[in-house]
Design a protein around this nucleic acid. Structure first.
Lengths: 153, 153
DNA sequence: TTTCTAATTGAAAATGATTTTCATTTGCAA
DNA sequence: TTGCAAATGAAAATCATTTTCAATTAGAAA
């Protein structure tokens, strides 16, 4: 969770701690819980260092994803969104799966996990003699806030 | 279901029945139940008319989708797949929602519908005060056939 | 501290799946 | 037949990545 711990962890993976890398990690930690696109991460990062390029953000995000420190989700808007999936316990981290509610008005992405649904998925897989490796469930609609504010588009 | 009925229906929508259009419809009907990408539809169509262009396939598919005669699904491979969703009853058609099992070995897309899951989704939406307009559920893994054939990659 | 070198970066080009443009062709109503 | 809006093919444009390549830099070694 704290930045130095995160950076230390990256060091153990053989990475150099560059200014750009630090800024990107900062952005991710500051927005923990939110789902950001590459462009959003870039524009946040640019507030600290206007020279950071999209390619650098891409490469860093990509690396974190490979290390399972980030999850990527592709939404129907054709973009990918990234979310830190860390619970640092010493130098360990765990990632947890969740599904998503996606507001088509304000764009907020709400996570949830429902054990009954997971069980039903397993049952369905069994029925079809199918071995599931991962799944995706996205509920698109309008969030409570937008309903309240009359954003019914 | 029969092609002339389909084409007639398109006529009532103000479309001209071109050779290309006929071929594309043929391909879709012949592959009813399967999910095809634009490229797949194009390559099938080219067997009848090698001059058909991707743009034409795109525009026709796009139109059918707008008319709710086709459903489009974007998979994690970054491509869109299209499926006829018709049950012609006279000049009417109905579309039905389903979720998908996607084999990461052979690419087959198996449809299913589970009422319990749909109910749970509604319950979750309620919990979050969220108004769902549509949803997507995709279970990725290996299908029974590929397991049998040892495609465990 | 300075040197050295592999890792990292920025800019720009490449990719890949669509999507649009535009000049030409064609279905079909009159 | 003719006329013309609809449809088409080829090529260019988009858009979100992803890669290339030459220049820069972190940080280990001297």
């Amino acid at each position: 969770m704290p930045e130095f711990e995160f950076l230390n962890y990256l060091k153990t993976l053989g990475l150099k701690i560059t200014n750009q890398r630090k800024i990107i990690i900062e952005v991710l930690l500051k927005n923990h819980g939110r789902h950001l696109s590459l462009e959003q991460i870039l524009s946040e990062a640019k507030k600290n260092n206007p020279k950071i390029s999209l390619a650098t953000v891409f490469r860093n995000i990509n690396f974190l994803e490979k290390e399972n420190l980030l999850t990527k989700m592709k939404l129907d808007d054709n973009k990918s969104y990234y979310e830190l999936c860390l619970d640092f316990k010493g130098s360990k981290h765990t990632s947890t799966h969740h599904d998503h509610l996606i507001c088509e008005s304000c764009g907020i992405i709400i996570e949830f996990y429902n054990d009954e649904i997971e069980k039903l998925q397993k049952k369905i897989a069994l029925d079809f003699n199918f071995k599931i490796s991962r799944h995706k469930m996205e509920l698109y609609g309008i969030c409570g806030n937008c309903i309240k504010n009359g954003e019914l588009k």
